[in-house]
């Protein structure tokens, strides 16, 4: 795990995220959001969780980001861009960041280096999903179905 790669990815991710949060044009912000997720996926690769990284790319960039773009297009009569900005939010966010960073730095026991591990293969993940995590897996399946149906019902045209 090289520190050069880490620094590059960190800068890229945080910059993209910041752009997603602050850019005026909605479309730009959505694209930056996708970029930030690419950075996050790179982090996962760096940490050895390749499967999660790929899942993130597929689900977030393939589905969620596209969904956001669609929503922007569907509601574009309202706003192409967003001018309002609430400075109180910035202060709160900064305060939260300072608080979190202070508490992380204050905790000495977590300043550790990653141990060497066996690669986490997809096979092992699959086995874990089908054995110990089979109930959560089924529950998530039900949840996704419910969310799908719920979303469809929400956006259905109201009957005249």
């Amino acid at each position: 795990m090289s520190s050069a790669a880490f620094v590059i990815i960190a800068i890229f991710t945080l910059a993209a995220a910041l752009a997603a949060a602050t850019l005026r044009k909605l479309m730009h912000a959505a694209l930056s959001f996708a970029a930030a997720l690419v950075g996050l996926a790179a982090f996962f690769f760096l940490l050895g969780a390749e499967f999660v990284g790929l899942a993130l790319v597929f689900i977030y960039i393939g589905a969620v980001a596209v969904l956001i773009v669609f929503t922007i297009l569907l509601t574009r009569r309202d706003v192409g861009e967003d001018r309002g900005f609430n400075w109180a939010g910035v202060i709160i966010a900064l305060a939260v960041f300072c608080g979190l960073t202070w508490s992380i730095l204050a905790t000495q026991s977590i300043s550790i280096v990653a141990p060497h591990i066996r690669a986490l293969t997809v096979k092992r993940i699959g086995e874990a999903l089908m054995t110990g995590y089979v109930w959560p897996l089924q529950c998530v399946g039900v949840l996704l179905t419910a969310a799908l149906i719920g979303a469809l019902i929400l956006v259905m045209e109201e009957k005249r």
């Binding site: 709160i92 966010a93 305060a95 939260v96 608080g99 979190l100 508490s103």
Partner: peptide, 10 residues
């Protein structure tokens, strides 16, 4: 909510 979280942290 965020302020509350901060308060808990403090």
């Amino acid at each position: 909510v965020a302020i509350g979280m901060l308060a808990l942290l403090l």
